[in-house]
């Protein structure tokens, strides 16, 4: 039951994009087409879940025993950057098909604040390993969901006659605002 609550809360109620404002850059940047947004979403799910495991082990088996948990920010960002590189290399060797699909999105993820954000949040919330993985996975699924819905809307927006001053980012932000309002409807669920 506890895990179901974490999943529903992370995907719908506290959606990473619409409620916590993490990962806005890729959300605005890679949401032009539904197909690319799906690729990006899948890559984020993949990286965040692995990062959660690594960060959890690092926090509780290295940083805390050594008493250097104030180094958290520096260690986490370096580990995440290295991890993304490693995932890219391993994927290239092990599964070229998956690499073809996700490859171009992987370098972009290093600067995705959702990855570091989730890593810091799961330490802050004091989750255990299984809870951390569940939380990270469902947060990433929430991100992918938001991205795909938004891309679908933006594909249609392309065809519309938008006033000059609204073109580009402003109309995207206003659309995201309305979507965020829709997601607020889930707030009673948990």
């Amino acid at each position: 039951m506890e895990y179901i609550l974490i999943i529903i809360s992370a995907i719908l109620v506290n959606n990473v994009v619409f409620a916590q404002f993490l990962g806005i850059c890729p959300f605005l940047g890679v949401s032009g087409k539904v197909s690319t947004s799906m690729g990006m979403g899948a890559a984020v799910v993949f990286v965040i879940t692995i990062a959660a495991v690594v960060v959890y082990l690092l926090q509780y088996y290295v940083l805390v025993p050594l008493g250097i948990d104030y180094m958290q920010t520096i260690v986490f960002i370096l580990v995440i950057a290295a991890l993304v590189q490693m995932v890219e290399i391993v994927l290239k060797k092990v599964s070229p098909a998956l690499y073809q699909a996700l490859g171009i999105f992987l370098p972009l993820i290093t600067t995705n604040c959702a990855v570091l954000g989730v890593a810091i949040l799961l330490v802050q919330k004091q989750y255990n390993l299984l809870q951390s993985v569940t939380f990270a996975f469902s947060t990433a699924v929430g991100f992918a969901l938001a991205l795909v819905i938004f891309a679908g809307i933006r594909e249609r927006l392309e065809l519309d006659d938008v006033p000059q001053a609204f073109r580009g980012t402003p109309i995207a932000l206003i659309t995201a605002g309305i979507l965020a309002m829709a997601f607020m409807g889930f707030s009673g669920l948990v």
Partner: peptide
């Protein structure tokens, strides 16, 4: 609340 952030920045 959250939607206001997007709307205000957009406008």
């Amino acid at each position: 609340l959250a939607p206001g952030a997007f709307l205000v920045l957009g406008y």
